[in-house]
Nucleic acid binder design. Structure first.
Lengths: 187, 187
DNA sequence: AAAAACATGTAAGCTGTTACATGATTGG
DNA sequence: CCAATCATGTAACAGCTTACATGTTTTT
């Protein structure tokens, strides 16, 4: 009995891209080359198998589009199952540990929210993000020893980590105002 | 003819930790748990095979230390080959692309410089780092479209990337002053 | 005529992870 | 005596990546 398949991070990226508009594997590759997507390779050996896997598991489907002259292409689009999986991924609650371990994934989620999530949903994400960032910041700050016992290298590494989180808190503030301006206000 | 083995990133992390002081696999695991090292798992299934591979390829060696009562432990230490490999990794020139693709690796290198590199070498690293960061920053800034055609999500993602790099430039400045203060000055 | 762009795939292999397995010693 | 800590491994597999393979159509 095969255990239930759920998309990998690359899988979600592909779902996100196909959710924007139906594309062929080739189109997906071009898009990933022009807008470098996290750390993923856009090589055929990465993309085509990943698409086939999503299709095999019913997250996407495809039709072959014949064009005069040009080679026919297999164009993929999300199924209902695919849309649900993407949406669930986008709306997943954040963990504090995501800030240090999965930051690039969080940013991918933010990016792909554009095509499905409402401003209100994006705001929820940003609020959650800022909240977790603040928690993480206070954890990091509690680790700074007042004594000069620890090395410069260690102290600077920690300082960098703190600045990173701080910067993300400020970024979230900025982003939230951008999405709040369009929000209908309550009396 | 087996093609020449060179350590993976995890391999370099282990070399870095063993360069600080000789340790058993168990000690390495404890250290990685207490000071979370990049994204690597400290599970036995990760650490022990990785250590064996380094040993097989002559980067580290080990002796079994028997203690009264307690179980004997296999304590690893760098060989000359291992020290050279670690040093080469630490001193490798940076690429601009490393800023977006291998930032955590760069920070690991900075961290492990503590135990081998002189202040002057650390400064060289930081200067190179700042230089590449500035280049990357200007590339990113050139991508910000003045038109409002692109989405808020896209614009904010780009803004975040820029802030990140900016922050790292400032961090490098800070770090450099910390290492310059101890440097002997020229007349 | 050749190069570049269009289009899709397979095969081998590296890297690392989780889950499983084992056993000794020490502290409560 | 039971749990926690000490200590080391194996096996199966996930999830990529690189290198190889192939063929068409358009542009130069």
């Amino acid at each position: 009995m095969a255990r239930p398949y759920s998309p990998t991070l690359l899988g979600y990226v592909l779902l996100g891209l196909l959710n924007q508009l139906p594309r062929s594997g080739y189109d997906v590759r071009l898009e990933m080359e022009s807008t470098p997507t996290a750390h993923f390779s856009s090589s055929p050996g990465s993309i085509y198998p990943a698409l086939q896997l999503l299709k095999k598991n019913g997250f996407i489907d495809s039709e072959v589009v014949h064009r005069s002259r040009l080679k026919p292409r297999e164009v993929f689009h999300l199924t209902e199952k695919g849309r649900k999986a993407l949406s669930a991924w986008l709306h997943k609650r954040l963990a504090v540990s995501d800030l240090r371990e999965n930051l690039s994934e969080l940013m991918l989620r933010f990016r792909f929210m554009e095509d499905t999530a409402s401003d209100e949903e994006t705001l929820r994400f940003l609020r959650d993000f800022r909240r977790k960032a603040r928690t993480y910041a206070s954890i990091l700050k509690s680790q700074t020893r007042p004594q000069a016992d620890s090395s410069r290298h260690f102290a600077l590494s920690l300082q960098r980590e703190i600045s990173m989180v701080q910067m993300h808190i400020e970024w979230a503030d900025q982003a939230m105002t951008a999405f709040e301006s369009a929000k209908p206000d309550k009396p």
